[in-house]
Structures are given as C-alpha cells and as structure tokens.
Simulated scan of single mutants.
Amino acid sequence: MKKIIFFVVSLSFMSVILFGCQSNDNNGHSDVNISKFSISKSSGFGKVNSDFFTVYKDKETLDIFKNAISNAVKREGIANMAEPKFDIKVIYTDGNKQGYHQWVGEKGQKSTLMNVNDTYTIYSISEEITNRLIGLVK
C-alpha cells in the first residue's frame, strides 16, 4: 500500500513540475507585464551588455515588445546562431529582470529572440512584429 501511495504522490508531483514548465514558456518569464526595456549592441552570448543606447518606458513601445515576447514561437532543436546583434534587458512590473539576445530581420522577415540564460533555445518573432521592432532597435 505504501508503494502505491508513493507512486501516486510521485506522479502528482511530476505532473505539477511538467505543467509548470509548459505554462512558463514565454521565453523564460510567465509575467509579460513590462515596466521598462533597454537595448544595447550585444557583446556576446550569455550576458547582457549594460551599455544601453536606448531605454523605453512608454506604454505603446512596451506593448510592442510585450507582444514580441508573448507571441514568439519556440523553435525545435538546438540553436546554432551567429553572435547576437542586440541585447535587451527587460524589467517586469513585479521587479523581475530578464535578458535577451535579439537578431532583428529586415522588413518582411522574421526575427529571433533568445533568453540569455538558455542559449540553446531560440524563438521566432513574426514578420509583422519584426516590422514594428525595426524602428526600435536601429
């Protein structure tokens, strides 16, 4: 009887862990309420260059980037990317911070986003959102 109870409890625990990982697939952050984001030229993988050339706090621009993060689509497989072009530091309304590497496509192309803490996974950003991001980073 103890083995059955242990097995059921173990399955329940695993379900909670798996569900938690799946529901937190917004590129490393489940809360996409952004209070500010800053952009810099990238200095390489795994860290955000803190020499920001612009900082955005206005609602319209924050909504563009919020849309980019929340609608980015995870690409399957292990990422093998060239050095990132831009780094982005996002500060959420709950005080959490997150860093991203970003490759911005040309008008009509997709862009790519990578969480600096997970350099093996990339996310695609649609052509429509890319067209809106171009003016923010260039």
Results as ranks from 00 to 15, higher is better:
D31Y: 13
G105K: 05
L18N: 07
P84I: 07
S111A: 03
N27R: 02
E127P: 01
G99K: 02
G95P: 15
F6D: 04
L11I: 15
S111F: 08
V90D: 06
T93P: 12
Y123L: 00
I39K: 00
V104A: 04
Y100I: 08
K2S: 08
F53T: 06
I78W: 06
R132F: 11
V116L: 02
S10A: 15
N67I: 03
S38W: 02
M14S: 13
F37A: 04
G28I: 10
T112S: 04
A68T: 10
N24S: 15
F7A: 12
I134P: 09
I129M: 05
Y92L: 12
N96R: 10
S42P: 01
V32K: 01
K74E: 14
S23A: 07
L18D: 00
N96D: 12
K107F: 12
E106S: 11
N24A: 10
S38A: 04
S43V: 01
G77K: 10
A68S: 09
Q109K: 08
K59H: 09
G46N: 05
I88A: 07
V9F: 12
S38K: 04
S111W: 08
K36D: 11
E76P: 08
N71E: 13
G44R: 08
C21H: 09
I4P: 05
G28H: 08
H29L: 10
L18P: 03
I125W: 13
L62Y: 00
S30G: 14
N117K: 15
L133N: 08
K138A: 11
M114S: 06
V32E: 06
D58C: 07
M114E: 12
F6H: 04
K59R: 11
E127H: 07
I122K: 10
K2E: 15
G108L: 04
S50G: 03
A82T: 12
D31I: 14
K36G: 05
L113S: 09
K138S: 14
T54K: 14
K57P: 11
K85H: 03
K85C: 02
A68M: 07
R75M: 13
I125T: 05
H29P: 03
G44L: 10
G108K: 00
Y120S: 15
I91R: 07
S111M: 01
N24Q: 10
E76M: 05
K47A: 11
N67R: 08
M14R: 00
S12M: 14
S70G: 07
E106F: 01
N49S: 05
F53Y: 12
V55N: 12
N96K: 14
D58I: 00
Q98A: 09
S12E: 06
F6T: 13
V137P: 04
F37Y: 08
K57G: 09
N117F: 15
V9Q: 03
G135E: 09
K66H: 07
K36E: 15
D25Y: 10
